[in-house]
């Protein structure tokens, strides 16, 4: 399975459509077997979506994402865990453990992640 996390420095980018970079991680069960960072700076929305398709991404863990992108990604079979904020690595760990949900704030300090799901 391939997971993509839009990045802003080492944190999850607050917006998928303008994130400067994306981290793509290939997982086999709970193990990271491959990973790469791809620059997205200057890409328009279509180029971003094309990039994800060409990299055969299955799931995106992201911050803000607009409804158009959500629908489009859904149609091409990419599952989205949205409104996640905080440290990208922590979000990945929570995902591997199977507990990450939309709206989680992974601040690296609190024991329990705070969740504020979309209304």
């Amino acid at each position: 399975m391939k997971v993509a996390i839009p990045l802003f420095k080492d944190r999850i980018s607050p917006r998928f459509d303008v994130c400067p970079e994306i981290w793509i991680i290939e997982l086999n069960n709970e193990e990271v077997i491959n990973q790469e960072k791809c620059t997205m700076g200057g890409f328009n929305l279509q180029q971003r979506l094309d990039q994800l398709t060409s990299k055969r991404v299955d799931k995106i863990i992201c911050g803000g994402i607009d409804n158009f992108c959500m629908d489009h990604l859904g149609k091409i079979g990419i599952d989205v865990i949205y409104n996640v904020a905080g440290q990208a690595r922590e979000a990945l760990n929570l995902f591997i453990k199977g507990v990450l949900q939309p709206g989680f704030y992974c601040d690296g300090k609190k024991e329990e992640p705070i969740s504020f799901e979309k209304n």
Partner: peptide, 17 residues
């Protein structure tokens, strides 16, 4: 939800990053 968080994670403007 907002207080204590980085403003770019809440405000999410196109210029934040």
């Amino acid at each position: 939800e907002a207080i204590g968080r980085y403003c770019y994670e809440i405000f999410r403007a196109d210029i934040c990053q």
